[in-house]
Nucleic acid binder design. Structure first.
Length: 558
RNA sequence: UGGCGGGUCGUCCAACGGUAGGACAAUGGACUCUGGAUCCAUUUAUUGGGGUUCGAAUCCCUGCCCGCCAGCCA
């Protein structure tokens, strides 16, 4: 993500380059990625990760990983390891700079006492409800708290007793003393500390007061010597507060810069909403291959390179936008096309008997592993009298533009032989249950010596050698571009987002494929082996389908 | 209706006072032992109105539209 598709710098990199040029912070670049450990990383977070880590990398700087764990009621250790794994998967390294906001609780407390001594923070006894009433509204100024004029000594005494656990949860807060009539509601004496008796995943019961985000975050950045603090656009009107705390304390002052978060069509990108569909069992978990989470994409077979390519293409700006899922799919195909080994896999098998091929014979044919990459070499694939082809590669009464197998017609079996359909078997319902074909021995390898052409080439698998597997087809999780445009976004879930196919027939090489490594099943799409199994058979996830021009032809006829 | 931030092809991003360009998508064609990939071509945009200027997407004024903010969440 050096720059965007145009070769021009995004506004953040412009700022960074200017700061380096002007020698700000001695030309030092130090960023941080500050996740709250309360959910899994999704591709929207990946945009932030690639901005934070990517920019540090590009400009010879450092990026810290810091868990922003200031709210023990929402956070959980289980997410800490998962988040670290996702960042590593993207290819980033925080070295020995793994931090937790909770590491700084003592220092933050000391800074708070300093604010009290300066007369810019006070202990307020108003209840949460009262605070709300005093705050005013968007159009009306707030009113000063009756506790706003307490003396420094009284505030200090009260704050220390808050810390000592003398007061019940929620009974008091420490607030910044700024301006209750500020048009920016964030500046209307925001809370700095709340009383909360909840065991913290790292500090246990050491604290019963916890700092609020606005107060904690700027301090965390300052303590770590962060030069550029990137965050999403909704924090823009928190920036005056970020700056205020730092200025009051007179400590190292990082620059907060906001950019637009990523939205994608046909999905949702909020931890809360993703958590909801996990909890409701709409998907199998955070790593369900339909989820926009990094663990979901990974399980589906998407590579970090594809994700990073995508992120590089969408750019970095302030205006809110919704990127077309088709672009992500393009990036995935583009990446996989170049790297993936090809395999023959028949998803909906139709048995073909080649009547002039000896019953007891098996021969070995050489297949190209990847036409895009000669170094990928070749492999041996067995051929025999009975094979499977894709059911929809045969049409008894062909569409006028159909180029595959038809009664009496000839087609090429990929890298094998020309075959001609000479008969078909049907059950009592008239459903085709098998085909009888003849092959031309002279076309071995797939070329005819007489130069005659066939209209199409289809894939196949030797019946006797096939690996029987379950294949799961995934589609977009939601049926509408913007699920949040309706009241009940759960109602727009795409009922066809998952399709289980049993009895799929894969060529023998499939058995040797590693879990999670995507391959291209020619003419069908990209697939990878899932960690799970079904009835002793392997399960394959479809990463993404190949572009399907045939489907488009049919669609455009309607 | 208070504040802050935004409005450029269908979508995303450029153009930083000097020819509005790229990518994806779409459409048409070429090629092809994957109806894949590749290649070529085509369609489509500066939020309205005023100004400043030789010249405005860009600067100014003024409408309009969109997003965010009234947690003791982050």
């Amino acid at each position: 993500m050096t720059n965007d598709e145009n070769g021009s710098l995004d506004f953040i990199r412009e700022i960074v380059e200017r700061d380096i040029k002007e020698g700000k912070h001695g030309g030092r670049i130090h960023t941080r990625f500050p996740p709250e450990p309360n959910g899994c990383i999704h591709i929207g977070h990946a945009k932030a990760i690639c901005t934070d880590f990517g920019i540090a990398e590009e400009y010879g700087g450092l990026c810290n990983l810091r868990f922003d764990d200031t709210n023990p009621v929402k956070e959980d250790v289980e997410f800490v390891e998962a988040i670290k794994e996702d960042i590593r998967w993207l290819g980033y390294d925080w070295g020995n700079r793994l931090y937790f906001a909770s590491d700084y609780f003592e220092q933050m407390y000391l800074y708070a006492e300093e604010l009290i001594r300066k007369g810019v923070a006070y202990v307020c006894d108003l209840s949460a409800e009262e605070v709300r009433q005093y705050r005013g509204t968007l159009t009306e100024p707030g009113r000063n708290s009756p506790y706003r004029e307490r003396s420094v000594d009284e505030n200090l005494d009260l704050f220390r007793r808050m810390k000592a656990g003398e007061f019940p949860d929620g009974s008091r807060t420490l607030r910044a003393r700024i301006d209750m009539s500020s048009p920016n509601i964030n500046m209307r004496d925001p809370a700095i500390y709340r009383i909360l008796r909840k065991s913290h995943h790292r500090t246990g019961d050491e604290w019963c007061i916890y700092p609020m985000y606005d107060y904690a975050h700027c301090l965390e950045d300052s303590i770590e010597g962060i030069t550029h603090s990137f965050c999403s656009i909704e924090f823009e009107d928190h920036r005056p507060l970020y700056d205020w705390f730092l200025d009051q304390l007179g400590i190292f002052h990082p620059q907060q810069i906001e950019f637009a978060r990523l939205n994608l069509t046909y999905t949702v990108m909020s931890k809360r909403k993703l958590a909801m569909i996990v909890e409701k069992g709409v998907v199998s978990g955070w790593d369900d291959p339909r989820m926009p989470t990094l663990s979901g994409l990974r399980r589906r077979g998407v590579t970090p390179e594809a994700v990073k390519d995508f992120l590089g293409r969408i750019g970095l700006a302030k205006r809110d936008s919704t990127v077309d899922m088709a672009l992500l799919e393009y990036c995935i195909r583009d990446d996989l096309n170049r790297r993936c080994m090809r395999l023959m896999g028949v998803l909906d098998p139709l048995k073909v008997t080649i009547e002039n091929y000896p019953e007891d014979r098996t021969e070995t044919l050489e297949f190209t592993n990847n036409p895009e990459d000669e170094s990928a070499g070749t492999r041996s694939v067995p051929f025999s009298r009975e094979i499977y082809i894709e059911r929809d590669d045969f049409q008894e009464e062909p569409h006028r533009k159909f180029k595959r197998l038809v009664p009496g017609g000839e087609v090429r079996l990929r890298y094998a032989y020309y075959i001609r359909c000479v008969g078909l078997e049907k059950d009592e319902d008239g459903t085709v249950t098998g085909l009888v074909c003849t092959y031309d021995p002279a076309t071995r390898g797939g070329d005819s010596p007489d130069g005659r052409k066939v209209s199409g080439t289809i894939h196949w698998v030797s019946a006797r050698h096939a690996v029987n597997a379950r294949v799961i087809l995934y589609d977009r999780l939601f049926s509408v571009e913007n699920p949040l445009s309706v009241d009940d976004f759960i109602g727009t879930i795409n009922d066809d987002s998952l399709e289980i196919l049993d009895g799929c027939m894969l060529e023998p090489a499939a058995a040797d494929m590693e879990v999670g490594v995507p391959v291209q099943c020619e003419r069908k799409g990209y697939f990878c082996k899932d960690p799970g199994t079904a009835g002793g058979r392997t399960v394959w996830n479809r990463t993404v389908a190949l572009r399907d021009t045939w489907k488009k032809i049919l669609r455009n006829e309607d």
